[in-house]
């Protein structure tokens, strides 16, 4: 037990494992990109135009523009989450891919780092897909500023990969993930300002939202799409990095305890 929660170790050995995930992804790339794009895009267009036509502008922009930033963030979050939960669990427990990799001169920490970075890579892809839609619709107010959302999707991906890996590390089966979606992801989507501004909610819910990482992601992405430089970037990035580091440390410790003792 002791030693399992020592700090995670980082090494470039994770790279061939990332390459493995990429090679699998390449085989099913068409379906994967469609999934990344179609679902969030229809939500965004449906709500943006449908609901948006009934609503006044929010902070000087159309509801569709407002929603596009939220969609970019939550679609990015979902990508990483689904990857490390369902695919990650399959690799660890069902398909025993990790067991095979562990027989090579690779450590469990390398496998987890590969999962973390791979989840973030999937997020990057989702974020890019939505960003292209935003560009095609001309929703961005500034090309240059909208490009800054790209590194942010990577950060969102790292955060939610790390958080998801905590669940994967303790999960007995796929059904277990329902808890995470019901108790963490869905509340996050509804509280953190994807569909409406956080300041429209009761004070207590606003305080809760302030602690959640998706709020901080949206607080940076939304101004960038609307052509403004976000305020308090240091705070937002700091909160997200704290969630990432804390979750990743916990996930590595729990996984070591599960597989190595």
């Amino acid at each position: 037990m002791n030693g399992n929660f020592a700090l995670p170790r980082f090494s470039w050995r994770f790279w061939p494992i990332w390459q493995r995930h990429f090679l699998v992804w390449k085989k099913y790339a068409g379906t994967s990109i469609l999934g990344n794009l179609a679902d969030p895009m229809f939500y965004m267009l449906g709500f943006g135009y449908g609901l948006g036509s009934l609503m006044p502008h929010i902070g000087g922009v159309s509801y569709l523009t407002f929603l596009s930033a939220g969609t970019l963030c939550y679609s990015t979050m979902n990508s990483a989450t689904f990857e490390v939960l369902y695919s990650g669990f399959s690799r660890m427990h069902v398909q025993k891919t990790w067991d095979a990799i562990l027989n090579a001169p690779v450590m469990l920490d390398d496998i987890l780092l590969a999962e973390l970075v791979w989840g973030a890579s999937k997020s990057l892809l989702s974020g890019l897909a939505i960003l292209v839609v935003i560009w095609l619709l001309g929703l961005q107010q500034s090309w240059a500023l909208s490009l800054w959302t790209i590194p942010l999707t990577l950060l969102i991906g790292l955060t939610f990969s790390a958080m998801g890996l905590v669940m994967t590390s303790v999960s007995p089966n796929y059904e277990f993930f329902i808890y995470y979606f019901t108790l963490v992801i869905t509340p996050m989507v509804l509280l953190c300002g994807v569909f409406y501004p956080v300041d429209r909610m009761p004070a207590l819910l606003q305080i809760l939202a302030t602690g959640l990482p998706l709020t901080h992601a949206i607080d940076m992405v939304r101004p960038l799409i609307q052509g403004r430089i976000p305020a308090y970037v240091g705070v937002h990035v700091g909160v997200m990095l704290a969630w990432t580091a804390g979750s990743y440390w916990l996930a590595v410790g729990l996984t070591r305890r599960r597989l190595l003792s």
């Binding site: 061939p16 390459q19 493995r20 090679l23 699998v24 085989k27 095979a100 990799i101 090579a104 690779v106």
Partner: peptide, 16 residues
């Protein structure tokens, strides 16, 4: 790795 061919299994494993 069920997603890979026979040769890919060896290649991917060798890269580890």
């Amino acid at each position: 790795d069920p997603d890979f061919t026979v040769a890919e299994n060896l290649l991917v494993y060798g890269r580890y």
